[in-house]
Design a binder for these strands. Structure first.
Length: 921
RNA sequence: GGGCGAUUAGCUCAGUUGGUUAGAGCGCUGUCUUGACAUGGCAGAGGUCACUAGUUCGAAUCUAGUAUCGCCCACCA
């Protein structure tokens, strides 16, 4: 093995070996354990959020595989309607073409071609990360199976009366020219303007003033509303106003939607262009007047002067015209919430179109009950609040999109506009007795991406085809075990899966939902291309030099003027670029950062620290392997106390990891392993057994120790494997021969079982560590030559101390660098020695004439302070009668023991200080 | 306006049903190239647990309130 751990030298080789061996396929035996990968967009590349979540999923999958479960990680990718169309459109434009030169079929062919070429980027990147999925079961939402599920679902929902089509106000993106869902609209507070406009009464008896942020929509006003209790306007209700610029007569109505406190208390009502106004219009029986084309230009409903104008040009024109007519009362800045499409960034219009909807009433109830009664559990549990809130306020789900890329809606129209929903055109004709001569035209809309995603749990397991369900393990793997995802898609996806899988299969899609935090940059900022703070997980694995990183971050910016700032910031943060940490270090970092209920500030120094940790493991392994040799080690059990101790510590670590993982506390699991490997195994165990490996006097124990070394390392590698699969597999291979392990790969080796800790052995070694640390501490603080060995004298050693000194003397001598250990009478004067308390014992280190009294006094003084503080605290507690009376006996007892210890230490230190002072004078 | 979360060492975070002198990593200080490892060893320094009040023998932990920050949801034209 090389002296330094080099991840790049081993990671890729293992991915290939594992996959070739088929060890990631479900075993078919054992209790099923299944995780559904939230399908990433086919357009996508792996970002930090993916890498994070995939690491956690893979970690769970690997642990359960090692525990012998029948493990399936169901992977796949999503066709991502809008996102993909935008990517391909941009590509066409980059080639100098135009999207509208393409026919529907040609465009779709182009998208498929693109999918063929680049659709596997993200899965290739997942492999780099070590994802142990059964890739032979990879699905795409537009594959035949999932597509059949989509059609079947649509038809059945329609048959059940749960799908309807109709004209409704929807969120309309005038640039993409499609409806989008509420969830795809992001509301930003932006600085706008508020205009006050005078609407004259038709009878000439004055006028009313209305306020609006969107004056152009007045062309579609149907009435003006006032609050029914607003005494200012009681006589106005029922009368009419003359709508400026159009001359249309519109009535004044009373509706308690109006807030009489705001503005003048009069509101213009435009049902076709505002969701609230739509409801007011409905209540009062007005027909909405749509004044926009799908591109949000003024249409022919409006006066000629405005037709064809873009919505923003129309606004300017109308404001100018109103002013000219003296009808503009006021114009002032106004902070308002502006809806924008999350894909296009454009201002969304409420727009009246025919769309398909799924009724959410009883599906919503089902979704709510499923979580309320615990059939699906959220981890952390407080996410149930978010889920509940949304489910209780569900709107019908608009599922149609005016796009080309996606599942086309299975509905056909005849010339009269009658609609026939069926699984195919043939079925439509058959069912409704339509002869071949009658022309049918399929609905041109597609279903929104989340419609197929909602079916993902059961559609990837063969539903609705009974044969495929049998072959793909529908019964076996549904419900899946846990869904790992971010809070941002609880509504988009999690809720809809719970409803759809529940409705169609009677099962839950997953038993638990583990909601992860968001990965942010070092400063807590969300990572985004436009901020130029994105980290690419692949760059953390392979490393990247600073120029390449800057180039990557500043390439194709939406706002080129940001370039200089991004470059400056990037060069400051990564003056040397990013070193290659390797996938294992990145994975371990993700696990270690994965606390609950908190976003994650991704700090490169953590990654570096865990890379160093793996290097430490690498070198400890080199040491173990050097001694384990390349031949089968002799059998036998090592009952030496140090062996029992390290096994005990390992047992505790295994127990801690098991417990942590059961609660999805990856951070605690990672920490337990880290601490065991570094603080126990490397810092103490390896050092403690060195005499047995090197000194001839201890040769009798050599084989037993070699075996223990190999066994502990074996279990440690198993424990660490789900977190850092590559390096552990690489090392573990070299243990197979010494330990006679039959299994071929660590990836499929058995998970270690936690034994019962050995308290006696732990107490012994704890004592040993106290003595050694005490000596070391005294040495350093007195600046005694660290390389030089020196004698140690011990006073006040009790029976067990003497017995332990006897057993551990050699080890103490070696680790504390002592030339001798001698028990001396308690009354031996310690004035020429450094004194260190260790348990009940006094450790004396002769200062051999080099006494720096001041330093020793300072050192003792510091110890005394510490002990006095402790004594004060315990005395105060014990003096409190109510503490003694009320606290559990064990707690009081512990406090008494502590008190005695402190008191004793204080006395010892005081005496020693006095002696030293006397000597110095 | 409603909801959720956070606030612990210079930085990033643990702290499990209340019970030592509140821990870790990074950074910092000193020191050491000892036959696994300088991506290291050893030894240190560093905190009024945001604030206030309460419950309790005992509070970082429980309760109420305050402050600051963050996120989600919401129809004020």
């Amino acid at each position: 093995m090389e002296k330094t751990y080099r991840p790049e030298a081993l990671e890729q080789r293992w991915t290939e070996t594992w996959e070739a061996s088929g060890c990631f396929r479900p075993s078919g035996e054992g209790e099923p354990y299944c995780i559904l990968l939230p399908p990433p967009n086919v357009t996508g590349t792996l970002h930090m959020g993916h890498a994070f979540q995939h690491t956690l999923m893979d970690c769970l999958i690997r642990v359960h595989r090692m525990r012998g479960r029948d493990t399936l990680w169901q992977v796949g990718v999503d066709h991502a309607g809008i996102a993909t169309e935008m990517v391909v459109t941009r590509q066409i434009e980059a080639e100098g073409g135009r999207r509208d030169e393409y026919s529907r079929d040609d465009f779709i062919a182009r998208v498929w071609q693109w999918k063929q070429e680049s659709g596997s980027t993200i899965t290739a990147q997942m492999r780099r990360l070590g994802a142990s999925a059964d890739w032979s079961r990879e699905r795409f939402t537009m594959d035949a199976g999932p597509s059949e599920a989509v059609i079947e679902t649509f038809v059945r929902l329609h048959e059940q009366g749960r799908i309807y089509r109709g004209p409704r106000l929807v969120n309309w993106d005038p640039v993409l020219k499609t409806a989008i869902s509420d969830l795809e609209v992001v509301n930003h507070e932006e600085q706008g303007r508020l205009w006050s406009i005078r609407y004259p009464r038709t009878d000439g008896q004055g006028d009313v003033v209305v306020a609006t942020t969107r004056p152009e929509t007045m062309l579609g006003d149907v009435c003006v509303a006032v609050h029914p209790d607003d005494e200012r306007y009681t006589d106005l209700v029922g009368r009419t106003l003359t709508l400026p610029l159009t001359g249309r007569e519109i009535p004044v109505v009373a509706d308690d939607y109006v807030d009489p406190e705001f503005g003048t208390g009069c509101v213009k009502i435009t049902p076709a262009h505002d969701f609230n106004d739509w409801e007011v219009g409905e209540r009062h029986g007005f027909d909405p007047i749509n004044i926009f084309t799908p591109e949000a230009r003024i249409n022919d409903e409006a006066p000629e002067a405005y037709r064809g104008l873009d919505r923003f040009d129309a606004r300017a024109r109308i404001v100018a015209d109103l002013e000219a007519e003296g009808l503009l009362v006021d114009e002032k800045p106004h902070a308002m919430v502006v809806p924008r499409g999350d894909r296009s960034g454009q201002i969304i219009e409420p727009f009246l179109t025919d769309q398909w909807f799924v009724k959410m009433d009883d599906l919503g109830r089902l979704g709510l009950e499923t979580v309320e009664n615990g059939d699906v559990e959220f981890v952390p549990g407080n996410w149930i609040n978010t889920y509940r809130h949304w489910m209780e306020n569900l709107q019908d789900w608009c599922i149609s999109r005016q796009l080309w890329w996606g599942h086309r809606i299975p509905a056909w129209y005849d010339a009269d506009g009658n609609v026939y929903v069926a699984r195919s055109e043939d079925e439509a004709r058959e069912r409704h007795g339509i002869d071949a001569a009658t022309e049918l035209r399929q609905d041109s809309d597609v279903l929104e991406t989340w419609f197929s995603s909602a079916l993902w749990a059961h559609s990837t397991l063969g539903w609705p085809d009974p044969e495929r369900m049998e072959a793909e393990g529908f019964d076996r793997y549904l419900p899946t075990s846990v869904l790992v995802t971010g809070f941002d898609i609880i509504f988009f996806w999690v809720a809809r899966m719970i409803m759809m899988t529940g409705h169609f299969t009677g099962r839950v899609p997953f038993e638990q939902v583990y909601i992860t935090g968001l990965i942010r940059d070092r400063d807590g900022q969300k990572m985004s291309k436009s901020k130029g703070n994105v980290l690419d997980p692949i760059d953390l694995i392979d490393g990247i030099d600073i120029d390449a990183l800057v180039e990557k971050r500043t390439r194709a910016l939406m706002q080129p003027k940001m370039k200089a700032a991004i470059e400056k910031h990037t060069r400051e943060e990564f003056p040397e670029g990013i070193p290659a940490f390797g996938a294992d270090a990145l994975r371990f970092t993700f696990a270690a950062l994965a606390g609950h209920g908190r976003d994650i500030k991704f700090d490169l120094s953590r990654c570096e620290g865990y890379r160093n940790f793996l290097n430490k493991l690498w070198n400890a392994s080199r040491f173990v392997l050097m001694h384990a040799g390349e031949e089968r080690l002799p059998d036998g059990r090592d009952d030496d106390v140090v062996a029992r101790w390290i096994r005990s510590r390992l047992d505790r670590a295994i127990g801690a990891v098991d417990e942590a993982l059961a609660g999805y506390r990856f951070d605690l699991a990672a920490r337990a392993i880290y601490e065991f490997v570094w603080n126990e195994f490397c810092d103490w165990y390896l050092e403690l057994v060195k005499p047995e490996l090197f000194d001839d006097a201890e040769a009798g124990r050599r084989d037993a120790t070699r075996r223990t070394l190999a066994e502990i390392l074996d279990a440690t590698l198993r424990l660490l494997h789900p977190f850092a699969p590559f390096v552990t597999e690489e090392i573990w291979q070299r243990l197979r021969t010494p330990l006679g392990i039959e299994g071929e790969h660590l990836a499929t080796a058995a998970w270690p079982a936690a034994g019962t800790p050995d308290a006696d052995a732990e107490a012994d070694v704890e004592w040993l560590k106290t003595v050694i640390s005490g000596v070391r501490s005294a040495r350093t603080e007195l600046n005694l030559a660290p390389g030089k060995t020196m004698p140690l004298m011990v006073q006040q050693a009790g029976k067990s101390d003497r017995e332990r000194l006897d057993r551990f003397g050699d080890r103490i001598r070696r680790l504390a660098r002592l030339e001798s250990i001698e028990i001396v009478p308690d009354d031996r004067d310690a004035a020429d020695c450094a004194v260190q308390l260790a348990g009940d014992m006094r450790l004396l280190i002769p200062l051999a004439g080099l006494v720096d009294v001041e330093e020793e006094l300072a050192r003792l003084g510091k110890q005394l302070d510490r002990e006095r503080k402790g004594l004060e605290s315990t005395e105060k507690k014990l003096a409190n009668e109510r503490f003694v009376a009320n606290a559990p006996e064990a707690v009081v007892e512990k406090e008494r023991a502590r008190n005695a210890e402190h008191a004793r230490a204080v006395a010892e230190l005081e005496a020693q200080i006095e002696k030293l002072r006397a000597m110095a004078d």
